[in-house]
């Protein structure tokens, strides 16, 4: 079976992740949506790497994982800071910022 199917799977996961970012008001859940999007990109890279028979795609996916890990550290640190100050991480709380 053609590995292209995995790319389609990646597209579906990517869309679900983006919907989560747009829909969810909880910062952590929205952030998990971003993680899913990055993973979907990884799946596409690995599938293309299989299709073309070279390793570059896998190495890129590897880099993305490292970058995502670093991003998670900073993101969760920001979320914790916001939580300490406001006792909530909802993106909808009466915000000081106006849209």
């Amino acid at each position: 079976m053609n590995p292209m199917n995995y790319v389609i799977l990646a597209a579906i996961l990517f869309s679900i992740g983006s919907a989560a970012v747009l829909l969810r008001r909880n910062a952590i859940v929205a952030f998990m949506g971003v993680e899913l999007m990055l993973n979907a990109a990884n799946l596409a890279l690995v599938a293309f790497s299989k299709i073309y028979g070279h390793l570059d795609g896998q190495i890129m996916a590897f880099f993305v994982m490292v970058v995502a890990a670093a991003e998670v550290v900073v993101g969760l640190a920001i979320i914790i800071t916001v939580f300490r100050a406001r006792q909530t991480i909802s993106l909808d709380e009466p915000a000081e910022l106006k849209g």
């Binding site: 389609i8 597209a11 990517f14 869309s15 679900i16 983006s18 919907a19 747009l22 829909l23």
Partner: peptide, 13 residues
């Protein structure tokens, strides 16, 4: 948001 994401999915697929 739903419509946008479904649209994105359909476009990509």
């Amino acid at each position: 948001a739903f419509a946008g994401s479904i649209g994105l999915a359909i476009l990509l697929i």
